[in-house]
Nucleic acid binder design. Structure first.
Lengths: 152, 152
DNA sequence: CATTGACTTGGAGCCAGCTCCAAGTTATAT
DNA sequence: ATATAACTTGGAGCTGGCTCCAAGTCAATG
C-alpha cells in the first residue's frame, strides 16, 4: 500500500490516457508496438504509465493524422517535438520544410474544392469543367515491380 | 479496317486515359467495378472507351482524393458533377454544404500545422505545447461492437 | 482465498484501396 | 498463319491502420 500510494497520481493510466487523447487503448498499444510512440514507462512492473508530455505527443499524432499524414511520415515530427534542437539536424529541417510545402498544396486543393462547391451551388449544376487540380499526378506503385512509364 | 478507322479518335483508350489522368489502368477498372465510375462504353464489343467528360470525372476523383475524402464519400459529388440540377435534390444540397464546412475546418487544421511548423522552425525546438487541434476527437470503432464510453 | 477489474502480451481478423496475375479475345503487322 | 500488343474478366494478394480476442498477471476487496 505504501508503494501504491507513492505511485498514485504519478501519471495517467492507459485508460485515462485513452480518454484524454481520444484514442483507444488498443491504438495506443499499437502505436507503441510499431514504435510510433516510445515504449511507455511501467508501474508495478507491467502497467503503462503516461506523463503530460506523453499525452502531448499523442495529441500531436492525432493532429498530424488529421492532416492526412501517414503514421510513418510523422515519425520525424515526433522525434522532433521532444527536445531536439532543429538547427542541429539539417536533414530533418529540410524534410519539414518539404512537408510544410505539401500541406500548403493540400490547403490549395481543399480551397479549390470549396470553390468547386460554391460554383456548383450557384450554378445549380455543372458543365464539363470540374476542378483544375490533378496537376501533379504522382501516383504509381509503392511496392514491387513498378509498372510506371512516365512519358516525359 | 474501315470500322477501325471510324472508331479511331472517337475517344480515349484505357491506356491513354490512365496516362492522362495519372491513375493506373487497374485503378480505373477498379473504380468501375465498385461503381465509383459508371460502366464505360465499349468499342469493338469489349474495349473501354472514354470521353473528355469521363476524364473530367476522373480528375475530380483524384482531386477529391487529395483532400483525403474516401471513395465512398465522393459518390455524391460525382453524381452531381454530371448534370444534376442541385436545387432538385435538397438532401444532397445539405450534404454538400456540410462537407464544405468540413473542408473549411480541414483547411484550418492544416493551417495550424503550418503555424506549428513555423513556430518550431523559429524556436529551434518545442516545449510541451503542441498544436491546439485534437479538439474534436471523433474516433471510435466504425465496425461492430463499439467499445465507446463517452464520459460526459 | 476467491472474485473482480484493470491491466498485460501475442496474434488473428478486418476494411479500404489498390495491385498483380492468369487465361482468354481480337486486331494488326510480318 | 502467327506473333505481338492491347485489351478483357475474375479473383487472389498485399499494405496500412487499426480492432478484437484469449490467456495470463496483479491488487484490492468482500
Amino acid at each position: 500500500m505504501s508503494l501504491a500510494e507513492a505511485d498514485l497520481q504519478q501519471g495517467y493510466s492507459i485508460k485515462e490516457t485513452a480518454e484524454r487523447t481520444g484514442m483507444s487503448e488498443d491504438t495506443i498499444r499499437y502505436y507503441e508496438k510499431i514504435g510510433l510512440l516510445p515504449r511507455a514507462k511501467r508501474k508495478g512492473n507491467s502497467h503503462r504509465i503516461y506523463s503530460d508530455s506523453d499525452l502531448n505527443r499523442m495529441l500531436l499524432v492525432t493532429c498530424l493524422k488529421k492532416t492526412g499524414m501517414s503514421l510513418d511520415d510523422m515519425r520525424p515530427y515526433l522525434d522532433l517535438s521532444l527536445d531536439a534542437d532543429l538547427s542541429q539536424y539539417p536533414e530533418l529541417h529540410v524534410m519539414i520544410l518539404n512537408h510544410r510545402q505539401k500541406i500548403i498544396e493540400q490547403i490549395a486543393s481543399l480551397q479549390q474544392i470549396v470553390d468547386f462547391i460554391d460554383v456548383k451551388i450557384e450554378q445549380g449544376n455543372l458543365g464539363p469543367q470540374t476542378c483544375e487540380l490533378a496537376g501533379d499526378r504522382k501516383q504509381m506503385p509503392r511496392g514491387r515491380k513498378a509498372k510506371a512509364k512516365a512519358k516525359a
